[in-house]
Design a protein around this nucleic acid. Structure first.
Length: 269
DNA sequence: GTTATGTTCCGTCATACGGT
DNA sequence: ACCGTATGACGGAACATAAC
């Protein structure tokens, strides 16, 4: 079974114990990446099959091992002010800074396409069953096994069920099911209710709510970190490609200049 | 085979940033 | 102002390689 919705598609497989597996795929889209001048000194080198980037921090007079805490804080403050990749890409995609050569296309020189992250839109599939029945599973590929989520070999599985009221229900423990209202995307504006839909108010439930929220936050942050690293890798690759292109251009221009000089000298003589 | 060292990947935390 | 997202920093685990 498969269903398309907007830019992505979703496939649902029947799993065991009434659990369905939803495979969500997002189409590759062009992403423009353009060179920037790094604010921090960067060393790029190759080690075997790996390309490594090391950000080198230059020691300053202020550096003092005896005041680790304040220094760490200072360092963090300085480093935190580095522009984000998103900001860099936004700035660079403006017409003024648009570069003309091919290295900016959606395909890098090694033929790899960039994948732009987008908003996942989930649609309700099948019949609208009560929350306590028909658990479904959202499978996130490229995920690694963690304690926070039910994962198997590069796949994170989030079990949920959608009730007729549009709320997503995530099972707690064995039989208990709590409701998350997830408007638009997977987990924005989490509203928790009990199985009956009545608000949770007891201290125990409050702590459960807290830990549940934390789990959700960690899960999302985990995914965000993964995505961020992927983007960073692509960004670095793009910079390396750009370096190669510019080096070639430089070489060509030097040779051209040389030839013109020789021509000029011959004419002069 | 064991130990030391280096590299990569991942999860988590803190916080800047951007949207509403 | 508040909230969600993106990202740098940090520490740990796993693996690779070199030196002994």
């Amino acid at each position: 079974m498969s269903a398309g919705n907007g830019p992505g598609t979703a496939d649902i497989e029947n799993g065991t114990q009434g659990i369905s597996v939803v495979h969500v795929s997002i189409p590759n889209q062009a992403i423009q990446v353009q060179p920037v001048i790094q604010a921090n000194p960067t060393v790029i080198h190759s080690a075997g099959n790996y390309q490594t980037i090391q950000v080198v921090r230059v020691a300053t007079v202020d550096d003092d091992l005896s005041s680790d805490d304040s220094d760490a804080k200072k360092r963090r403050e300085i480093l935190a002010r580095r522009p984000s990749y998103r900001k860099i890409l936004n700035d660079l995609s403006s017409p003024v800074n648009k570069m003309e050569d091919d290295s900016n296309s959606s395909q890098s020189q090694d033929g790899q396409e960039y994948v732009q992250s987008g908003t996942l839109q989930l649609t309700a599939h099948g019949d609208a069953t009560p929350a306590t029945q028909g658990l479904q599973t959202l499978t996130m590929t490229n995920a690694s096994p963690t304690s926070a989520s039910n994962s198997t070999g590069g796949t994170t599985i989030v079990q949920y069920a959608q009730g007729p009221d549009g709320q997503f229900y995530i099972p707690v423990g064995g039989t208990n099911v709590q409701a998350y209202q997830i408007p638009g995307s997977l987990a924005q504006g989490v509203v928790m209710t009990g199985v009956t839909g009545s608000p949770i108010s007891s201290p125990q439930h409050m702590s459960e709510e807290g830990s549940r929220k934390r789990e959700l936050r960690l899960l999302k942050n985990r995914e965000a970190a993964r995505e961020c690293r992927r983007k960073k890798k692509e960004y670095v690759k793009c910079l390396e490609n750009r370096v190669a292109v510019l080096e070639n251009q430089n070489k060509t221009l030097i040779e051209e200049l040389k030839a013109l000089k020789e021509l000029y000298c011959q004419k002069d003589a």
